[in-house]
């Protein structure tokens, strides 16, 4: 947990990241930045999905509609926070010459998306009317 708090402090302190270790090849930093942006796009897509559930499934019961939308929005928030956290960790690992951090997040996110998708199919087909 303290590691996580330290990472959060790094989000706002560029000089701290820059002082550690040596500067990696700029191409690696830019690749890391593009990965960060790809995750951010995923997060924005999930947020857009939350809006879309609310707007384009108006026949659903309120609880299902709001529940699915909030699940997607929550996944979007988690995904964007994790994006910046992972970016900082990768940047620091590259500066120190360590291995890049492993992550359980991608399978976790895909499971959440799969569960929401299945729930949406079930709700739209069978129970959501009225």
């Amino acid at each position: 947990m303290s590691e996580f708090v330290r990472n959060i402090r790094l989000w706002f302190a560029p000089e701290q990241v820059r002082q550690e270790g040596g500067t990696p090849d700029y191409r690696f930093s830019l690749a890391n930045e593009r990965t960060f942006l790809a995750w951010l796009r995923t997060a924005l897509a999930l947020i857009g999905g939350g809006f879309a559930v609310d707007q384009f499934l108006p026949d659903l019961r309120w609880a299902w509609r709001v529940g699915l939308a909030l699940a997607l929005l929550g996944a979007g928030v988690l995904c964007s926070l994790r994006a910046v956290n992972h970016w900082v960790r990768c940047e620091r690992a590259m500066r120190r010459g360590e291995d890049l951090p492993a992550s359980r997040f991608p399978p976790l996110l895909s499971l959440v998306v799969a569960v929401v998708a299945v729930a949406m199919v079930v709700v739209v087909l069978f129970r959501g009317e009225g």
Binding site: F12, L30, V88
Partner: peptide, 13 residues
């Protein structure tokens, strides 16, 4: 090009 400033990454997030 310099690396992305964490401040900007945080602002985007």
């Amino acid at each position: 090009p310099p690396a992305l400033a964490p401040r900007h990454a945080s602002a985007a997030v």
